[in-house]
Design a binder for these strands. Structure first.
Lengths: 216, 216
DNA sequence: CGCAATGAGTTAGAACCTATAACGGAAGCA
DNA sequence: TGCTTCCGTTATAGGTTCTAACTCATTGCG
Protein backbone atom coordinates (compact mmCIF):
# COMPACT_ATOMS: atom_id res chain seq x y z
CA UNK A 1 0.00 0.00 0.00
CA UNK A 2 2.27 2.75 1.29
CA UNK A 3 5.65 3.04 -0.40
CA UNK A 4 7.90 3.86 2.50
CA UNK A 5 10.74 5.84 1.00
CA UNK A 6 12.13 7.03 4.29
CA UNK A 7 15.04 5.63 6.25
CA UNK A 8 18.07 3.53 5.42
CA UNK A 9 17.99 0.88 2.72
CA UNK A 10 17.76 -1.75 5.43
CA UNK A 11 14.77 -0.07 6.97
CA UNK A 12 13.13 0.20 3.60
CA UNK A 13 13.74 -3.48 2.90
CA UNK A 14 12.45 -4.39 6.31
CA UNK A 15 9.27 -2.37 5.84
CA UNK A 16 8.79 -3.90 2.41
CA UNK A 17 9.09 -7.46 3.73
CA UNK A 18 6.71 -6.62 6.58
CA UNK A 19 4.17 -5.39 4.05
CA UNK A 20 4.61 -8.57 2.02
CA UNK A 21 4.06 -10.69 5.11
CA UNK A 22 0.89 -8.76 5.90
CA UNK A 23 -0.32 -9.11 2.32
CA UNK A 24 0.00 -12.88 2.52
CA UNK A 25 -1.64 -12.82 5.95
CA UNK A 26 -4.63 -10.96 4.53
CA UNK A 27 -4.91 -13.56 1.82
CA UNK A 28 -5.10 -16.32 4.41
CA UNK A 29 -7.54 -14.40 6.58
CA UNK A 30 -9.81 -13.59 3.65
CA UNK A 31 -10.08 -17.23 2.65
CA UNK A 32 -10.11 -19.01 6.00
CA UNK A 33 -10.45 -16.47 8.81
CA UNK A 34 -7.99 -15.09 11.32
CA UNK A 35 -7.88 -18.30 13.34
CA UNK A 36 -6.40 -20.11 10.34
CA UNK A 37 -3.54 -17.64 10.00
CA UNK A 38 -0.26 -19.57 9.98
CA UNK A 39 3.19 -18.04 10.10
CA UNK A 40 4.70 -21.20 8.68
CA UNK A 41 2.38 -21.14 5.69
CA UNK A 42 3.21 -17.50 5.00
CA UNK A 43 6.92 -18.22 5.23
CA UNK A 44 6.59 -21.17 2.88
CA UNK A 45 4.73 -19.11 0.28
CA UNK A 46 7.39 -16.41 0.52
CA UNK A 47 10.16 -18.94 -0.02
CA UNK A 48 11.44 -18.48 3.51
CA UNK A 49 11.82 -20.92 6.33
CA UNK A 50 9.51 -20.54 9.31
CA UNK A 51 11.56 -18.75 11.94
CA UNK A 52 12.64 -16.07 9.47
CA UNK A 53 9.38 -14.23 10.03
CA UNK A 54 10.25 -13.71 13.68
CA UNK A 55 12.72 -11.10 12.51
CA UNK A 56 9.71 -9.03 11.43
CA UNK A 57 7.01 -9.86 13.94
CA UNK A 58 7.65 -11.06 17.48
CA UNK A 59 4.96 -13.69 17.05
CA UNK A 60 1.56 -14.53 15.68
CA UNK A 61 -0.16 -12.16 18.10
CA UNK A 62 1.95 -9.19 17.06
CA UNK A 63 1.21 -9.86 13.39
CA UNK A 64 -2.50 -10.02 14.08
CA UNK A 65 -2.28 -6.85 16.15
CA UNK A 66 -0.63 -5.11 13.20
CA UNK A 67 -3.39 -6.36 10.91
CA UNK A 68 -6.06 -5.10 13.30
CA UNK A 69 -4.38 -1.73 13.42
CA UNK A 70 -4.20 -1.56 9.61
CA UNK A 71 -7.84 -2.57 9.32
CA UNK A 72 -8.87 0.09 11.83
CA UNK A 73 -6.69 2.61 10.06
CA UNK A 74 -8.25 1.86 6.67
CA UNK A 75 -11.74 2.32 8.10
CA UNK A 76 -10.82 5.59 9.75
CA UNK A 77 -9.18 6.85 6.55
CA UNK A 78 -12.17 5.90 4.42
CA UNK A 79 -14.58 7.60 6.78
CA UNK A 80 -12.47 10.70 7.33
CA UNK A 81 -11.83 11.11 3.61
CA UNK A 82 -15.53 11.20 2.89
CA UNK A 83 -16.22 13.49 5.81
CA UNK A 84 -13.62 15.98 4.59
CA UNK A 85 -15.36 15.89 1.23
CA UNK A 86 -18.46 17.10 3.01
CA UNK A 87 -20.31 13.81 3.36
CA UNK A 88 -23.37 13.71 5.58
CA UNK A 89 -24.47 10.79 7.77
CA UNK A 90 -26.15 8.78 4.98
CA UNK A 91 -23.03 9.08 2.85
CA UNK A 92 -20.86 8.00 5.76
CA UNK A 93 -23.17 5.05 6.30
CA UNK A 94 -22.61 3.96 2.72
CA UNK A 95 -18.86 4.30 3.15
CA UNK A 96 -19.04 2.10 6.22
CA UNK A 97 -21.08 -0.55 4.44
CA UNK A 98 -18.85 -0.48 1.38
CA UNK A 99 -15.78 -0.87 3.54
CA UNK A 100 -17.35 -3.78 5.41
CA UNK A 101 -18.59 -5.62 2.32
CA UNK A 102 -15.26 -5.17 0.54
CA UNK A 103 -13.61 -7.50 3.05
CA UNK A 104 -15.84 -9.04 5.72
CA UNK A 105 -12.97 -10.63 7.60
CA UNK A 106 -11.28 -7.25 7.83
CA UNK A 107 -14.50 -5.90 9.33
CA UNK A 108 -14.58 -8.74 11.85
CA UNK A 109 -10.98 -8.11 12.80
CA UNK A 110 -12.23 -4.76 14.09
CA UNK A 111 -15.78 -5.53 15.21
CA UNK A 112 -15.81 -9.31 15.62
CA UNK A 113 -15.30 -11.71 18.49
CA UNK A 114 -12.68 -10.46 20.95
CA UNK A 115 -10.16 -12.68 22.68
CA UNK A 116 -11.01 -12.62 26.43
CA UNK A 117 -7.61 -11.55 27.71
CA UNK A 118 -6.67 -9.25 24.84
CA UNK A 119 -6.20 -5.57 25.59
CA UNK A 120 -6.30 -3.25 22.60
CA UNK A 121 -3.08 -1.26 22.17
CA UNK A 122 -3.13 2.47 22.68
CA UNK A 123 -3.06 3.42 19.03
CA UNK A 124 -6.16 1.48 18.08
CA UNK A 125 -8.16 3.28 20.75
CA UNK A 126 -6.86 6.51 19.27
CA UNK A 127 -8.13 5.44 15.86
CA UNK A 128 -11.49 4.57 17.38
CA UNK A 129 -11.63 8.07 18.84
CA UNK A 130 -10.83 9.49 15.43
CA UNK A 131 -13.77 7.62 13.89
CA UNK A 132 -15.99 8.81 16.72
CA UNK A 133 -14.93 12.40 16.11
CA UNK A 134 -16.05 12.15 12.49
CA UNK A 135 -19.39 10.71 13.57
CA UNK A 136 -19.79 13.49 16.11
CA UNK A 137 -19.12 16.12 13.45
CA UNK A 138 -21.68 14.63 11.13
CA UNK A 139 -24.05 13.98 14.00
CA UNK A 140 -23.87 17.57 15.18
CA UNK A 141 -24.73 18.74 11.68
CA UNK A 142 -27.70 16.41 11.44
CA UNK A 143 -28.96 16.43 15.01
CA UNK A 144 -32.49 17.72 15.43
CA UNK A 145 -33.01 21.09 17.04
CA UNK A 146 -33.35 20.96 20.79
CA UNK A 147 -36.48 19.45 22.21
CA UNK A 148 -36.78 17.98 25.69
CA UNK A 149 -33.67 15.80 26.12
CA UNK A 150 -34.33 12.09 26.56
CA UNK A 151 -33.14 10.17 29.59
CA UNK A 152 -30.26 8.79 27.53
CA UNK A 153 -29.27 12.24 26.34
CA UNK A 154 -29.15 13.47 29.92
CA UNK A 155 -26.98 10.51 30.86
CA UNK A 156 -24.66 11.04 27.87
CA UNK A 157 -24.36 14.74 28.63
CA UNK A 158 -23.11 13.74 32.07
CA UNK A 159 -20.74 11.04 30.77
CA UNK A 160 -19.07 12.43 27.70
CA UNK A 161 -15.49 11.55 28.54
CA UNK A 162 -15.31 9.98 25.08
CA UNK A 163 -16.22 13.09 23.06
CA UNK A 164 -12.61 14.26 22.83
CA UNK A 165 -13.66 17.81 23.65
CA UNK A 166 -16.13 17.89 20.80
CA UNK A 167 -18.79 20.59 21.33
CA UNK A 168 -21.62 18.36 20.15
CA UNK A 169 -24.99 18.75 21.85
CA UNK A 170 -26.43 15.73 23.69
CA UNK A 171 -28.72 14.91 20.77
CA UNK A 172 -25.66 14.63 18.53
CA UNK A 173 -23.93 12.34 21.00
CA UNK A 174 -26.96 10.12 20.97
CA UNK A 175 -27.24 10.24 17.19
CA UNK A 176 -23.59 9.32 16.62
CA UNK A 177 -23.87 6.46 19.08
CA UNK A 178 -27.07 5.10 17.55
CA UNK A 179 -25.58 5.44 14.08
CA UNK A 180 -22.64 3.33 15.17
CA UNK A 181 -24.52 0.63 17.07
CA UNK A 182 -27.44 0.23 14.66
CA UNK A 183 -25.37 0.07 11.51
CA UNK A 184 -22.77 -2.30 12.92
CA UNK A 185 -25.70 -4.34 14.18
CA UNK A 186 -27.04 -4.83 10.66
CA UNK A 187 -23.58 -5.33 9.20
CA UNK A 188 -22.44 -7.87 11.78
CA UNK A 189 -25.54 -10.00 11.26
CA UNK A 190 -25.39 -9.66 7.49
CA UNK A 191 -21.71 -10.48 7.18
CA UNK A 192 -21.97 -13.37 9.62
CA UNK A 193 -24.62 -14.85 7.35
CA UNK A 194 -27.54 -14.56 9.74
CA UNK A 195 -29.73 -13.13 6.99
CA UNK A 196 -28.91 -15.99 4.64
CA UNK A 197 -32.01 -17.66 3.35
CA UNK A 198 -34.34 -15.01 4.77
CA UNK A 199 -35.00 -13.67 1.31
CA UNK A 200 -34.93 -9.91 1.85
CA UNK A 201 -32.20 -7.55 0.72
CA UNK A 202 -29.93 -6.48 3.60
CA UNK A 203 -29.14 -3.24 1.84
CA UNK A 204 -32.78 -2.17 2.05
CA UNK A 205 -32.78 -2.84 5.76
CA UNK A 206 -29.54 -0.92 6.09
CA UNK A 207 -30.84 2.06 4.15
CA UNK A 208 -34.05 2.06 6.16
CA UNK A 209 -32.01 2.23 9.35
CA UNK A 210 -30.08 5.16 7.91
CA UNK A 211 -33.36 6.94 7.08
CA UNK A 212 -34.70 6.24 10.55
CA UNK A 213 -31.57 7.75 12.06
CA UNK A 214 -31.72 10.92 10.01
CA UNK A 215 -35.42 11.53 10.49
CA UNK A 216 -36.98 9.79 7.49
CA UNK B 1 -27.82 -29.64 32.16
CA UNK B 2 -30.19 -32.30 30.90
CA UNK B 3 -30.15 -35.58 32.81
CA UNK B 4 -30.61 -38.08 30.04
CA UNK B 5 -32.23 -41.09 31.66
CA UNK B 6 -33.19 -42.70 28.38
CA UNK B 7 -31.45 -45.54 26.60
CA UNK B 8 -29.07 -48.29 27.58
CA UNK B 9 -26.52 -47.86 30.36
CA UNK B 10 -23.87 -47.44 27.72
CA UNK B 11 -25.79 -44.68 26.02
CA UNK B 12 -26.36 -42.97 29.35
CA UNK B 13 -22.66 -43.15 30.20
CA UNK B 14 -21.77 -41.88 26.74
CA UNK B 15 -24.11 -38.92 27.04
CA UNK B 16 -22.75 -38.15 30.48
CA UNK B 17 -19.14 -38.11 29.26
CA UNK B 18 -20.13 -35.94 26.32
CA UNK B 19 -21.68 -33.45 28.72
CA UNK B 20 -18.55 -33.48 30.85
CA UNK B 21 -16.40 -32.81 27.81
CA UNK B 22 -18.62 -29.88 26.84
CA UNK B 23 -18.51 -28.52 30.37
CA UNK B 24 -14.72 -28.44 30.30
CA UNK B 25 -14.85 -26.92 26.80
CA UNK B 26 -17.06 -24.09 28.08
CA UNK B 27 -14.56 -23.46 30.82
CA UNK B 28 -11.78 -23.05 28.32
CA UNK B 29 -13.87 -20.90 25.99
CA UNK B 30 -14.97 -18.64 28.81
CA UNK B 31 -11.42 -17.96 29.90
CA UNK B 32 -9.57 -17.85 26.60
CA UNK B 33 -12.06 -17.88 23.73
CA UNK B 34 -13.11 -20.54 21.28
CA UNK B 35 -9.87 -20.37 19.34
CA UNK B 36 -8.00 -21.56 22.42
CA UNK B 37 -10.14 -24.65 22.82
CA UNK B 38 -7.89 -27.71 23.01
CA UNK B 39 -9.06 -31.31 22.99
CA UNK B 40 -5.80 -32.44 24.54
CA UNK B 41 -6.18 -30.03 27.42
CA UNK B 42 -9.74 -31.20 28.05
CA UNK B 43 -8.62 -34.84 28.00
CA UNK B 44 -5.81 -34.12 30.40
CA UNK B 45 -8.13 -32.40 32.86
CA UNK B 46 -10.52 -35.34 32.66
CA UNK B 47 -7.77 -37.84 33.39
CA UNK B 48 -7.97 -39.26 29.89
CA UNK B 49 -5.42 -39.49 27.15
CA UNK B 50 -5.93 -37.34 24.09
CA UNK B 51 -7.42 -39.65 21.45
CA UNK B 52 -10.05 -40.92 23.91
CA UNK B 53 -12.18 -37.86 23.17
CA UNK B 54 -12.48 -38.88 19.53
CA UNK B 55 -14.85 -41.62 20.69
CA UNK B 56 -17.25 -38.83 21.65
CA UNK B 57 -16.64 -36.12 19.07
CA UNK B 58 -15.28 -36.74 15.60
CA UNK B 59 -12.98 -33.76 15.99
CA UNK B 60 -12.55 -30.23 17.23
CA UNK B 61 -15.01 -28.85 14.71
CA UNK B 62 -17.75 -31.25 15.74
CA UNK B 63 -17.29 -30.31 19.39
CA UNK B 64 -17.48 -26.62 18.58
CA UNK B 65 -20.56 -27.23 16.45
CA UNK B 66 -22.20 -28.97 19.40
CA UNK B 67 -21.33 -26.01 21.62
CA UNK B 68 -22.78 -23.56 19.11
CA UNK B 69 -25.95 -25.60 18.96
CA UNK B 70 -26.20 -25.67 22.77
CA UNK B 71 -25.59 -21.93 22.95
CA UNK B 72 -28.25 -21.25 20.34
CA UNK B 73 -30.60 -23.64 22.11
CA UNK B 74 -30.11 -21.92 25.47
CA UNK B 75 -30.90 -18.52 23.93
CA UNK B 76 -34.01 -19.83 22.21
CA UNK B 77 -35.16 -21.51 25.42
CA UNK B 78 -34.61 -18.37 27.48
CA UNK B 79 -36.48 -16.21 25.01
CA UNK B 80 -39.31 -18.65 24.44
CA UNK B 81 -39.77 -19.23 28.16
CA UNK B 82 -40.28 -15.53 28.76
CA UNK B 83 -42.54 -15.18 25.76
CA UNK B 84 -44.75 -17.99 26.99
CA UNK B 85 -44.97 -16.17 30.29
CA UNK B 86 -46.45 -13.25 28.39
CA UNK B 87 -43.36 -11.07 28.08
CA UNK B 88 -43.51 -8.07 25.76
CA UNK B 89 -40.66 -6.75 23.64
CA UNK B 90 -38.91 -4.77 26.42
CA UNK B 91 -38.96 -7.86 28.64
CA UNK B 92 -37.57 -9.98 25.82
CA UNK B 93 -34.86 -7.39 25.29
CA UNK B 94 -33.85 -7.72 28.92
CA UNK B 95 -33.75 -11.51 28.59
CA UNK B 96 -31.49 -11.19 25.59
CA UNK B 97 -29.15 -8.83 27.37
CA UNK B 98 -29.07 -10.97 30.50
CA UNK B 99 -28.29 -14.04 28.44
CA UNK B 100 -25.51 -12.23 26.60
CA UNK B 101 -23.90 -10.71 29.70
CA UNK B 102 -24.04 -14.02 31.57
CA UNK B 103 -21.48 -15.49 29.17
CA UNK B 104 -20.11 -13.18 26.48
CA UNK B 105 -18.17 -15.91 24.72
CA UNK B 106 -21.35 -17.97 24.45
CA UNK B 107 -22.99 -14.93 22.83
CA UNK B 108 -20.10 -14.63 20.39
CA UNK B 109 -20.33 -18.30 19.52
CA UNK B 110 -23.74 -17.45 18.11
CA UNK B 111 -23.32 -13.86 16.90
CA UNK B 112 -19.56 -13.45 16.60
CA UNK B 113 -17.05 -13.78 13.82
CA UNK B 114 -17.94 -16.57 11.41
CA UNK B 115 -15.42 -18.91 9.84
CA UNK B 116 -15.46 -18.22 6.05
CA UNK B 117 -16.07 -21.76 4.90
CA UNK B 118 -18.35 -22.86 7.73
CA UNK B 119 -21.93 -23.74 6.89
CA UNK B 120 -24.35 -23.79 9.82
CA UNK B 121 -26.00 -27.20 10.26
CA UNK B 122 -29.70 -27.51 9.61
CA UNK B 123 -30.79 -27.60 13.24
CA UNK B 124 -29.19 -24.27 14.15
CA UNK B 125 -31.10 -22.54 11.37
CA UNK B 126 -34.25 -24.14 12.79
CA UNK B 127 -33.40 -22.67 16.19
CA UNK B 128 -32.82 -19.27 14.59
CA UNK B 129 -36.27 -19.53 13.03
CA UNK B 130 -37.70 -20.38 16.44
CA UNK B 131 -36.20 -17.21 17.93
CA UNK B 132 -37.52 -15.21 14.98
CA UNK B 133 -41.00 -16.62 15.54
CA UNK B 134 -40.97 -15.39 19.13
CA UNK B 135 -39.87 -11.94 17.98
CA UNK B 136 -42.60 -11.91 15.35
CA UNK B 137 -45.22 -12.79 17.95
CA UNK B 138 -44.08 -10.03 20.25
CA UNK B 139 -43.59 -7.66 17.33
CA UNK B 140 -47.11 -8.25 16.04
CA UNK B 141 -48.47 -7.44 19.48
CA UNK B 142 -46.48 -4.21 19.70
CA UNK B 143 -46.51 -3.05 16.08
CA UNK B 144 -48.15 0.30 15.51
CA UNK B 145 -51.51 0.41 13.78
CA UNK B 146 -51.30 0.67 10.04
CA UNK B 147 -50.10 3.90 8.56
CA UNK B 148 -48.54 4.28 5.13
CA UNK B 149 -46.04 1.39 4.84
CA UNK B 150 -42.42 2.45 4.50
CA UNK B 151 -40.27 1.37 1.57
CA UNK B 152 -38.67 -1.30 3.74
CA UNK B 153 -42.05 -2.61 4.87
CA UNK B 154 -43.13 -2.96 1.27
CA UNK B 155 -39.94 -4.83 0.48
CA UNK B 156 -40.31 -7.10 3.51
CA UNK B 157 -43.93 -7.82 2.66
CA UNK B 158 -42.70 -9.07 -0.70
CA UNK B 159 -39.83 -11.10 0.73
CA UNK B 160 -41.11 -12.83 3.82
CA UNK B 161 -39.83 -16.33 3.11
CA UNK B 162 -38.38 -16.22 6.62
CA UNK B 163 -41.61 -15.60 8.52
CA UNK B 164 -42.39 -19.31 8.81
CA UNK B 165 -46.00 -18.67 7.88
CA UNK B 166 -46.44 -16.13 10.67
CA UNK B 167 -49.37 -13.79 9.96
CA UNK B 168 -47.51 -10.70 11.14
CA UNK B 169 -48.18 -7.43 9.32
CA UNK B 170 -45.27 -5.74 7.52
CA UNK B 171 -44.81 -3.31 10.39
CA UNK B 172 -44.27 -6.26 12.72
CA UNK B 173 -41.72 -7.81 10.37
CA UNK B 174 -39.85 -4.53 10.37
CA UNK B 175 -40.11 -4.17 14.13
CA UNK B 176 -38.84 -7.69 14.84
CA UNK B 177 -35.95 -7.19 12.45
CA UNK B 178 -34.99 -3.81 13.93
CA UNK B 179 -35.26 -5.24 17.43
CA UNK B 180 -32.85 -7.98 16.49
CA UNK B 181 -30.30 -5.86 14.61
CA UNK B 182 -30.28 -2.85 16.94
CA UNK B 183 -29.99 -4.82 20.16
CA UNK B 184 -27.32 -7.20 18.89
CA UNK B 185 -25.57 -4.10 17.61
CA UNK B 186 -25.34 -2.62 21.08
CA UNK B 187 -24.51 -5.97 22.67
CA UNK B 188 -21.79 -6.90 20.20
CA UNK B 189 -20.02 -3.58 20.67
CA UNK B 190 -20.46 -3.65 24.44
CA UNK B 191 -19.25 -7.24 24.89
CA UNK B 192 -16.35 -6.72 22.51
CA UNK B 193 -15.21 -3.86 24.74
CA UNK B 194 -15.74 -1.06 22.25
CA UNK B 195 -17.47 1.05 24.89
CA UNK B 196 -14.62 0.59 27.35
CA UNK B 197 -13.34 3.90 28.58
CA UNK B 198 -16.15 5.89 27.02
CA UNK B 199 -17.67 6.51 30.41
CA UNK B 200 -21.38 6.03 29.77
CA UNK B 201 -23.47 3.10 30.93
CA UNK B 202 -24.20 0.65 28.11
CA UNK B 203 -27.40 -0.44 29.81
CA UNK B 204 -28.85 3.06 29.46
CA UNK B 205 -28.06 3.03 25.75
CA UNK B 206 -29.61 -0.40 25.46
CA UNK B 207 -32.77 0.62 27.29
CA UNK B 208 -33.03 3.76 25.18
CA UNK B 209 -32.90 1.63 22.05
CA UNK B 210 -35.66 -0.55 23.47
CA UNK B 211 -37.77 2.52 24.14
CA UNK B 212 -37.14 3.85 20.65
CA UNK B 213 -38.26 0.52 19.19
CA UNK B 214 -41.49 0.38 21.16
CA UNK B 215 -42.48 3.97 20.55
CA UNK B 216 -40.86 5.92 23.35
C1' DC C 1 39.62 0.87 1.90
C1' DG C 2 39.15 -2.51 5.55
C1' DC C 3 37.07 -4.38 9.39
C1' DA C 4 33.81 -4.81 13.08
C1' DA C 5 28.87 -4.54 14.05
C1' DT C 6 24.34 -5.33 12.68
C1' DG C 7 20.91 -8.11 11.35
C1' DA C 8 18.71 -11.49 7.90
C1' DG C 9 18.13 -16.23 7.19
C1' DT C 10 19.36 -20.85 8.18
C1' DT C 11 18.83 -25.55 10.70
C1' DA C 12 17.85 -28.03 15.00
C1' DG C 13 14.78 -28.82 18.41
C1' DA C 14 11.32 -28.36 22.30
C1' DA C 15 6.59 -28.24 23.33
C1' DC C 16 2.40 -28.02 21.85
C1' DC C 17 -1.70 -29.33 18.83
C1' DT C 18 -5.18 -32.48 15.80
C1' DA C 19 -6.06 -36.77 14.09
C1' DT C 20 -5.45 -41.80 12.69
C1' DA C 21 -4.09 -46.65 13.43
C1' DA C 22 -3.65 -50.67 15.94
C1' DC C 23 -4.21 -52.98 20.01
C1' DG C 24 -5.97 -54.62 24.87
C1' DG C 25 -9.65 -55.29 27.71
C1' DA C 26 -14.08 -54.47 29.93
C1' DA C 27 -18.98 -54.34 29.54
C1' DG C 28 -23.25 -55.76 27.52
C1' DC C 29 -26.03 -59.50 25.54
C1' DA C 30 -27.71 -63.93 23.62
C1' DT D 1 -20.39 -69.23 28.30
C1' DG D 2 -18.86 -66.90 24.45
C1' DC D 3 -19.39 -63.22 21.03
C1' DT D 4 -19.79 -58.60 19.88
C1' DT D 5 -19.45 -53.88 20.78
C1' DC D 6 -17.09 -50.17 22.14
C1' DC D 7 -13.97 -47.58 25.48
C1' DG D 8 -9.36 -46.23 26.34
C1' DT D 9 -4.71 -47.03 25.58
C1' DT D 10 -0.05 -46.26 23.15
C1' DA D 11 2.37 -45.18 18.92
C1' DT D 12 2.76 -42.30 15.20
C1' DA D 13 2.34 -38.85 11.48
C1' DG D 14 2.17 -34.21 10.46
C1' DG D 15 0.97 -29.71 11.71
C1' DT D 16 1.74 -25.47 14.54
C1' DT D 17 4.49 -21.61 17.43
C1' DC D 18 8.62 -20.21 19.09
C1' DT D 19 13.71 -20.32 20.93
C1' DA D 20 18.58 -21.21 20.31
C1' DA D 21 22.67 -21.26 17.91
C1' DC D 22 24.97 -20.62 13.87
C1' DT D 23 26.32 -18.67 9.04
C1' DC D 24 26.88 -15.06 6.17
C1' DA D 25 25.83 -10.78 3.64
C1' DT D 26 25.39 -5.93 4.19
C1' DT D 27 26.08 -1.73 6.35
C1' DG D 28 28.62 1.89 8.05
C1' DC D 29 32.44 3.71 10.66
C1' DG D 30 37.32 4.67 11.48
Amino acid sequence: MVESDAGTPRERYRAQVQEEIKAHAWGQIRSAGASALSLSAIAKRMGLSGPALYRYFAGRDELITALVRDAYRSLADAVRLQAEAGADLPALARVLRGWALADPQRYFLVYGTPVPGYEAPEDTTAIAAEIMAVLLDAGAAAAPVASAPSALEVHLAEHRAWDGGHPAPPSALRLALAFWTRLTGVLSLELAGHFAGMGFDPEQLYEAEVRALTGR
